[in-house]
């Protein structure tokens, strides 16, 4: 299993992706640049951190479309959906390490939930309608969340908007209410990843440009 995961990391991974956690780990270990629990820093991270996830989802979809590597796996007992899922996880490992390096465990949910949700959303739309539409939809969701978070934070205090928009640092919600929404985002993100698994199992052709 370890050897298998090593291969998935090698297939999906990028050495450049590891520069980020190393960079943040150095900054944190030196302790001179910032404090991970600073609210302003967390607010900044909440809108920056989820952004790579749609891009990672796009990368893996684009790579698969170009090379059709999963079709070969039909001749193995492994589900190709599961292989794709693990490959996506392998691709995101440096970003989970970045999260560990740049924030306290209590804040991981705040940052991780919107990332997983956006990544899962991009994968599902990308598998169904095309990887570029998936990326566009993921980035649009992130952009709308950012715009509302900055310009109309009062909207995030109630109703559907508080559940649908991802960036809540400026909302008038109580910490418990924010936490509840983040758990919901995390759950939805994981559900979308499971849906990705099923979709990849069924997918056997890609629309060409």
């Amino acid at each position: 299993m370890i050897r298998y995961f090593f291969y998935e990391v090698k297939i999906a991974g990028n050495v450049g992706g590891w520069l980020l956690p190393v960079f943040f780990a150095i900054l944190r270990l030196t302790g001179v640049v910032w404090q991970p629990g600073n609210p302003a820093w967390l607010g900044f991270l909440e809108f920056v951190y989820p952004l790579p996830f749609p891009l990672l989802a796009y990368t893996i979809l684009e790579g698969e479309k170009a090379r059709r590597t999963l079709e070969v796996l039909i001749a193995t007992p492994r589900r190709k959906g599961l292989v794709f899922f693990l490959r996506y996880l392998a691709l995101t490992v440096p970003f989970f390490c970045t999260l560990v390096a740049m924030s306290y465990p209590g804040d991981w949910l705040l940052l991780l939930a919107p990332g997983l949700l956006l990544g899962g959303f991009t994968l599902v739309i990308g598998l169904g309608l095309g990887e570029e539409i998936g990326l566009g939809a993921g980035l649009a969701w992130w952009g709308v969340s950012l715009v509302f978070g900055v310009t109309k934070p009062q909207l995030l205090g109630h109703g559907v908007a508080s559940w649908l928009l991802l960036i809540l640092f400026s909302s008038p919600l109580s910490p418990q209410e924010v936490l509840l929404r983040k758990w919901a985002h995390l759950g939805a993100g994981l559900l979308l990843l499971l849906l990705t698994l099923a979709l990849t199992d069924r997918k056997c052709s890609w629309k060409l440009r």
């Binding site: 297939i11 059709r68 590597t69 079709e71 070969v72």
Partner: peptide, 10 residues
């Protein structure tokens, strides 16, 4: 054993 028409390795 399966070699698909559009085959790509890693």
């Amino acid at each position: 054993g399966y070699l698909p028409q559009e085959y790509g390795a890693y």
